[in-house]
């Protein structure tokens, strides 16, 4: 009996535009008060859940790769984890076809909400063969993001936090840690 091999994509959802709904509540001057890094990595819309994400990916794959792509992907595609609060998701897909799903994620530009659409960018930050590694990476990144946000905020306000941060970590690296874990999927490039 041979195990079916999967790839787990750890995805961060970034929101490049300003939040529109809260504009009324905020006073006019404080629009830009949040640092950019916090704005980009804010919690997603309430409607975001695994079901919606799965539907979006299937539509994207069908749009880009047609019936062939959606047929190849649909058997193995599964949203393992989707957090609206941290805008993080883990997506499982068969190893042979992960590039199609990744491309579909790259081509997504917006997410439907109740009133219209929210522009968003999906960034794959980790590609691994086991879900455990993805989880560990997600936790590591969440920590770094918090630290980063604190640093961005404490530039002039909270010196104590800043000092502690400086001791803990010079600069959190949020780039893809060690690139792509392996290149076993290379043979399937011609599929696209």
């Amino acid at each position: 009996m041979v195990r079916i091999k999967y790839r787990y994509l750890l995805v961060n959802i970034l929101y490049p535009e300003q939040e529109v709904q809260n504009k009324k509540q905020l006073p006019a001057g404080s629009k830009d008060s949040l640092p950019y890094t916090v704005q980009f990595r804010r919690p997603g819309p309430d409607s975001l859940n695994g079901k919606l994400l799965s539907r979006l990916i299937r539509e994207g794959v069908a749009d880009l790769f047609g019936d062939y792509g959606s047929g190849m992907v649909s058997g193995s595609l599964m949203v393992k984890y989707c957090s609206q609060a941290t805008s993080t998701a883990i997506i499982r897909v068969a190893r042979a076809h992960y590039r199609m799903v990744w491309a579909a994620l790259s081509f997504m530009t917006s997410m439907p909400v109740k009133a219209g659409e929210v522009p968003c960018v999906f960034q794959v930050v980790r590609l691994s063969g086991t879900i455990r590694k993805s989880e560990e990476e997600a936790i590591r990144r969440a920590r770094l993001q918090i630290r980063r946000a604190q640093r961005a905020n404490g530039g002039d306000a909270d010196a104590a936090v800043k000092a502690v941060d400086g001791a803990v970590d010079a600069e959190g690296d949020l780039a893809m840690a060690d690139g792509i874990e392996d290149f076993e999927g290379e043979g399937d490039e011609s599929d696209g």
């Binding site: 490049p16 790259s106 522009p119 960018v121 999906f122 960034q123 780039a175 893809m176 690139g179 792509i180």
Partner: peptide, 10 residues
């Protein structure tokens, strides 16, 4: 615009 940017690995 920011929406059309993608991560390097993407």
């Amino acid at each position: 615009g920011a929406v059309a940017c993608r991560g390097p690995w993407d």
